[in-house]
Design a protein around this nucleic acid. Sequence first.
DNA 1: TAGGCCATCTGGTCCT
DNA 2: AGGACCAGATGGCCTA
Length: 358
Amino acid sequence: MMTKHFGKSGNVSELVSSLSWLEEDGSSQDGDESPEMRSHDHGLVLGGRIRSCGELGSEDMEEEEEEEEDDEEEVERNGENGPKRRGPKKKKMTKARQERFRARRIKANARERSRMHGLNNALDNLRRVMPCYSKTQKLSKIETLRLARNYIWALSEVLENGQSTESHGFVEMLCKGLSQPTSNLVAGCLQLGPTPLILNKLEDKCGGQGMGDAVAGHPLSYPSPGLPSPPYGSLETSHLLHMKGFKASVYDNPSPNDCSSGTPSYDGPLTPPLSISSNFALKQEPSPHESERNYTPHPGHHAHYLSAHHFPSSTAGSLPGGAQAHPIFQASRYEVPLDVVFESFTPSHLVTSQMGTI
DNA sequence: TAGGCCATCTGGTCCT
DNA sequence: AGGACCAGATGGCCTA
């Protein structure tokens, strides 16, 4: 990371002097600064480039030189014959003023970093309550926000219209407007029942009501006003997870720590009132792929999402790009009708941890 | 190599 | 005056 900015500065003395930050505690908590950050705060390399003092407002000049400089500046401000510019004359940048400016800038930079870290922490917290969460493969910021919007939207439909979380439409809403890769991730994460047959049964079960109808049709195509361009806003049926019948009825709220290992505490409840993705427990032997990716089942109520190509090909349910979807189960969170579960998967996929609850 | 994503710095604006 | 917030600019990293 040190080379990040110094690579282009090419100033050895600056580099050496800034390396002194490495001698100190390099912890980078909120408010703390990484060595890289601190190098900036020394006013050496700014924004990936060396900034001359002139860029900061005025050259490093002696007091006696200022009169001259100001005259030149006045000419520059007014042009050859231009009208005199109104407003306060630019204040002289004495050394003392420069130092104050620099100190203020350093403080402001630190605050800004801290603010952005706080924002990122909040985004992480948001990621944790999303239907898909993985420490190893985070949703991008924009996709996190999109998914959050969709999640709220979908849950609202559940509450207001009795839309079933089992329905195809629920998942479609979740994926609406997401980029294709993210849709694939969400779909893969929530992939529960691979066959269209099951899907059809689900549709029947839901009576064809609710939002699922609004987006019914194959392949599915979502107009995404306001979204930049494809791949945003399109989704094919084969990309979707296939929700299986379950009722998110049991909701034993774990300790908030369940979802925040090694992360800043989160004040609000981490567990959403309803999570369509968390109703199945992954009890399969981890595939080599998953091991490689350091995939570990989330201890809380949130399912993980995995890149589609992480799914073992032995499982049914194709994802775009030749990837295979893999049913992800989550541990002991909700009561799930086992018949429904077994309807979807071979027994080898399943290990029930508790009677009637997986 | 282009494009996406990200962290950071920076200057401007608004508010206290 | 100083802090919060914002948007633009910049460069690094990663991936297709």
